[in-house]
């Protein structure tokens, strides 16, 4: 694009997403928010905002449950700990949440692994027809990425969220999709192949979302707030306790492993 081409974008926003017309109305993806969408549930609106599509009640319920079942108010968990530390320093709740959400874009457990997991399942489902091909595909993935997103868990090998979310998916009639089946076929091969990598919540939620029809970007956007409900209690408790009492760290709690003391050069 040339400088002259940029001028057409100056001072005005051309959009199809929506706008506020103060004193009159607000449009959300082509619909009057207070009239046409007046009775919409917030979660429905959230997914509609991301995808531009409306989903069935059962699909929305499953997506919401994916959030619910990983809402852990445990201030030891790294992203939650950020929210709690903000409480302990008497920072604001909004800053606590915002920072905690930003930290949730983690390669180990958050947005990074979720995006990779759904991308892998969608790609694999498209490319692979038979299980012999799947094994080769898995070996290739393991070789190039030293792991498969959605398999294995950083702290322990079992995942307590899996059974409840599968039961929920079953109760909603959403447990028969091809990506969920594929996710388990992959686990079977990983265990048989002695990689000892068990399926985790990232792969399950990715598979369910893929079967519902979300793209990697849509799933990643949707999941950017997946841990939100667990953060607030961590902040609430920390801010109510005396300042500085969340994991106070004494000098001897730090294991210094650096160079010996030395003299800084003179000016």
């Amino acid at each position: 694009m040339k400088p002259d081409d940029l001028k057409q974008f100056s001072n005005s926003l051309k959009t199809r997403m929506g706008a506020c017309f103060p004193g009159e109305k607000a449009i959300f993806r082509g619909h009057d928010l207070h009239q046409e969408l007046g009775d919409i549930e917030w979660f429905d609106l959230y997914i509609y905002g991301i995808t531009g599509k409306r989903f069935t009640k059962n699909k929305l319920s499953l997506l919401e449950t994916i959030w619910t079942y990983t809402s852990y108010p445990d201030a030891r968990i790294w992203n939650n700990r950020v929210a709690a530390l903000a409480g302990s320093t008497k920072s604001t709740a909004n800053l606590a949440t915002s920072a905690s959400l930003a930290v949730s874009e983690a390669e180990v457990y958050g947005g990074g692994v979720l995006y990779k997991s759904i991308s892998f399942l969608l790609r694999t489902n498209k490319e692979i027809d038979v299980s012999s091909q799947l094994k080769i595909h898995i070996e290739k993935e393991l070789h190039s990425n030293r792991g498969i997103a959605g398999y294995g868990r950083p702290l322990i090998s079992s995942d307590e969220r899996i059974l409840p979310i599968l039961e929920k998916a079953k109760s909603l009639g959403l447990n028969k999709g091809p990506h969920l089946k594929l996710a388990y076929d992959i686990e079977k091969l990983l265990i048989e192949g002695r990689w000892r990598l068990r399926i985790n919540y990232a792969a399950i939620s990715s598979a369910l979302a893929a079967d519902i029809g979300l793209s990697p970007m849509q799933f990643y956007q949707f999941m950017s707030t997946v841990f939100l409900a667990g953060m607030q209690p961590c902040y609430t408790e920390a801010v109510e306790k005396p300042a500085g009492t969340l994991f106070p760290t004494a000098c001897h709690d730090i294991k210094y492993e650096g160079v010996k003391k030395r003299i800084w050069k003179e000016k």
Binding site: C251, I254, E257
Partner: peptide, 22 residues
């Protein structure tokens, strides 16, 4: 006690308070 590991920073405490930096 679980420790935080670092090669960057060493702090020596005051004798009366392990949370105060000498």
């Amino acid at each position: 006690m679980q420790a935080i590991h670092t090669k960057i920073w060493l702090e020596e405490p005051e004798n009366e308070n392990p949370y105060a930096t000498k």
